[in-house]
Amino acid sequence: MDTNRRGFLGAVGRVTIGAAASIAGAGEAAEAAASPGRAPHWGMVVDLRKCIGCQACTVACIMENHVPEDAFRTHVSVYELVTDGQDPAMVMLPRLCNHCDDPPCLPVCPVEATFKAETGEVLVDASKCVGCAYCVQACPYDARFVNHETQVADKCTFCIHRTRAGLLPACVETCVGGARNFGDLNDPESPVSKLLAAHPVSVLRPEMHTNPNVYYIGLDEVLDGRVTGEAAWHPPFDPGASVAEVH
């Protein structure tokens, strides 16, 4: 985690801190100009060998981004993997927006509320979004939803409000096993670039050719298309419920 943080801080130092973000993600301020030189291109490498399914990332994201009840910007799906001749195994699949370089959610937006930031994030301008949900339907990763409180499209933003302040995304900061790694894909010395160079990686839904910026180490091929389904953890509907009441 310390190496991950040092590499990230080196990259974020090259970016000018932007103005305030909009509710659903970020507004035009998300494309604030980078400082002279190359801008970072943020990406994430998830090492499934280290994910223990603790859902700390899920909880951290909900708390950090004020995600409404029964909605998720990120979560960890849990599957039982059965292989011939072997005992069943529980496997974890952390999921979030893949911040694609060719995002199918972008061209379907009739008001151009969805846009690609200079630093790689796919974002939503809440001031433009009309809540039509075309982008929700177009996303091949089931990573978008219409926020029932704001009535606009909502999704993971790689915690742009944190990265522009020199902080790691909340899910990366709180990952107990160090499974989530975040950094500059343009920098060959960043933790994520080193992981990509050192290990075979996979992406979800490769047949969609979206050029995602979220990569997985140790992803079983039978899971690369598993991007739908109920989250393994749900927040309590009763705001006063204790942890023991969460199943």
Rank of each mutant, 00 (worst) to 15 (best):
T3Y: 05
T3R: 12
T3G: 15
R5F: 03
R5G: 02
R6N: 11
F8S: 04
G10V: 06
V12T: 11
R14V: 01
S22E: 12
S22G: 13
I23L: 12
I23C: 01
I23T: 11
G27H: 09
G27K: 10
A29Q: 13
A30N: 05
A30T: 04
A33M: 10
A34H: 07
G37T: 04
R38T: 13
A39L: 11
P40Q: 04
H41D: 12
W42M: 01
W42I: 03
V45T: 05
D47Q: 06
D47R: 04
R49T: 14
I52P: 00
G53Y: 07
G53P: 07
C54T: 06
Q55E: 15
Q55R: 09
A56W: 02
V59G: 00
V59Q: 11
M63C: 02
H66V: 10
V67T: 15
V67S: 03
E69R: 07
D70T: 03
V76T: 15
Y79R: 10
V82Q: 12
M90H: 08
M90F: 08
M92P: 01
L96I: 09
C97S: 14
C100N: 07
D101C: 01
C105A: 12
P110Q: 11
T114E: 13
T114R: 06
E118M: 05
E121F: 14
E121R: 00
D125T: 06
A126Q: 07
G131V: 00
Q137K: 13
Q137A: 14
Q137C: 01
A138E: 07
C139T: 04
D142L: 00
A143M: 09
A143F: 08
R144C: 07
V146C: 05
N147W: 08
H148L: 09
H148E: 12
E149S: 09
T150W: 04
K155D: 13
C156G: 05
C156K: 02
I160N: 03
R162E: 03
T163A: 02
R164V: 00
G166T: 06
G166R: 03
L167C: 09
A170I: 03
C171W: 02
C171M: 11
T174W: 09
V176P: 03
G178L: 03
R180I: 15
N181I: 10
N186L: 08
P188H: 02
E189V: 01
P191F: 01
V192P: 07
S193H: 04
L195F: 04
L195R: 04
H199V: 00
H199Q: 10
H199K: 09
V201N: 10
V203P: 06
P206I: 06
E207V: 04
M208H: 11
N213K: 10
N213M: 12
V214E: 10
Y215D: 06
Y215N: 02
Y216L: 10
Y216K: 11
D220C: 09
D220S: 11
V222G: 01
V222Y: 00
G225Q: 13
G225R: 14
V227R: 10
T228R: 13
E230K: 12
E230N: 12
A231C: 05
A231M: 00
A231K: 05
D238E: 13
G240A: 11
A241S: 12
S242Y: 01
E245G: 14
E245C: 02
H247A: 12
